[in-house]
Design a protein around this nucleic acid. Structure first.
Lengths: 215, 215
DNA sequence: CTAATTTACTAAACACTGTTCATAAAATTT
DNA sequence: AAATTTTATGAACAGTGTTTAGTAAATTAG
């Protein structure tokens, strides 16, 4: 029936409205400062209404979680896939870092927060977005091997270590730890560094490290 | 005057009581679930009293932050310093991981949360604890160089990448991301893995990686 | 040994948070 | 037009960090 469909569409619309409002507030004011009431006010509905479309806040967070992953994949899709596997690996790392830098809150949401991940396991859902991203890394690592890199190294472990290294760098950056180290490092190494140059420097060191694993 | 001293001691005592109560609740129920009211109840004082000894919750968190770092350093002090620099580096990594595994909430507090770090920069305080830990890593890296490792690699960048790799691994573990990947990885690689074996596997891969950087 | 003053403490309130539920309004079906 | 289903909400619950005004206790002064 056409009417039922239209109603269903309306319902879906409101569901998306809630999500876009949440995303907006979320990116504007950060996750911590985004309340159900604020989302409700933005879409001009009562707070209680939101609970007719989402079971709880975690379900909203989970939806944003998926959204954030698509954004990451979007960043990945920009890279030139005609390059060598190793060059692609570096490009992946750079895109990953840029994503974390441009959308720190989204990054924290999808990679650091426990809640969205907990929601996935609670609902016994699969995490296709994450799997896809990881398998992209994994395949690139495997292809790097054919180019002579990472000999004798197990690919899964290697992929995880690359991911970990990048993830660690990004989280140390967003949490403010790197910023602080940049200052105190200046004393030790007598090199004045701002956060971003330190970040770049560390990434370049990582590339150099990976390059040394050839032949 | 003796009386004033005794009073001062009493005051300091209560300040420490608040902290130990906070730490206890914190390690029992996690950070999120620890409220000022709960701390107050544990020490049998009014919530308002706590604000006579600590400006706000951030100040308590900051105190716990320092405490957590001492705990980390305690873990570090257990390692055998008569070994080679490289063996010490590995031992440092292992101790770091064990610390993160045994005290996940403390780890999150000192390395992942923005608030305590923000408090440091807000009060224009130094972060000696962090500096000490990092310089321990830095010096070990430098000594590794004398053993033939990390040739041509810049030490600061190298130290940061090692830290990042370990930090990334630990946070992916505590956030539940690694747990999820362990399941989906089983499909790809047809290797059934539980989280801890995957964690160990990844760390072993990292060691292998570092070993390849000799000569 | 009272009286004044300083110090230590707390009850109550404020402005929030996520969430639930009975009730009301709107839309749809009979 | 009446009955029914769907949709939306006001009000409340239990919780959070924090502030303030006022009380009880300890200390000092007379």
């Amino acid at each position: 029936m056409g009417v039922a469909e239209r109603k269903e569409r309306h319902k879906e619309d409101l569901k998306k409205d809630i999500l876009t409002a949440a995303k907006q507030l979320f990116t504007e004011k950060g996750f911590e400062a985004t309340s159900i009431r604020a989302i409700a006010e933005k879409i001009e509905y009562s707070p209680a209404t939101i609970y007719l479309y989402y079971k709880d806040k975690n379900e909203i967070v989970h939806a944003l979680h998926q959204d954030g992953f698509n954004l990451l994949m979007q960043h990945f899709s920009k890279i030139d896939f005609s390059q060598s596997a190793f060059a692609r690996l570096i490009a992946l790392g750079r895109a990953y870092m840029q994503f974390a830098f441009e959308h720190p809150d989204v990054y924290t949401l999808i990679f650091s927060m426990k809640e969205p991940m907990q929601h996935v396991t609670d609902c016994e859902k699969e995490w296709h977005e994450g799997d896809r991203a990881f398998s992209l890394l994994y395949k690139t690592v495997e292809e790097c091997k054919q180019e002579g890199y990472f000999k004798d190294m197990e690919s899964v472990g290697m992929s995880f270590m690359i991911w970990s290294a990048m993830h660690g760098l990004c989280t140390l950056r967003t949490s403010g730890h790197l910023e602080h180290m940049a200052l105190s490092c200046a004393e030790v190494t007598s090199l004045k560094m701002d956060v971003n140059t330190l970040l770049d420097h560390n990434f370049e060191t990582f590339i150099k490290l990976l390059e040394k694993l050839k032949n």
